[in-house]
């Protein structure tokens, strides 16, 4: 998983998680996700998508595949074997370009 791009095909942009500080003095808060080709675009998209009504003073974005998460439920781990990725996005899986419609 250490190559740069984990996209399904050559026209799908990676997924980014967006965190917004709604006003000075508050923490950045997760508001949702979006698709962008690179970090600069992800920030601009976040501005356009998530702050259309002036909801933010500062934006963080991180590519979703870089987020690691705790396991919410030990019992469930029996059924949902070790996978510390926070979101179960299919884009986490690195597949060859030739593979279509999966």
């Amino acid at each position: 998983m250490d190559n740069q791009y984990t996209v399904q095909d050559k026209t799908s942009w990676p997924l980014w998680e967006v965190f917004i500080r709604s006003k000075q003095g508050l923490d950045h808060k997760h508001v949702g996700s979006l698709h962008a080709a690179d970090a600069a675009m992800a920030i601009e998209n976040a501005r356009d998508v998530y702050t259309r009504r002036m909801e933010g003073v500062s934006i963080w974005v991180v590519e979703s595949r870089h987020i690691h998460a705790s396991n919410p439920d030990e019992a469930a781990s029996l059924y949902d074997p070790a996978n510390d990725k926070v979101y179960r996005h299919p884009t986490f899986y690195d597949l060859p370009d030739e593979l279509k419609h999966m």
């Binding site: 942009w13 979006l34 698709h35 962008a36 601009e44 998209n45 356009d48 998508v49 259309r52």
Partner: peptide, 11 residues
């Protein structure tokens, strides 16, 4: 071409 940019250009 994609939702995110549809929104950007509309802005």
């Amino acid at each position: 071409p994609i939702l995110e940019q549809d929104i950007a250009l509309s802005n």
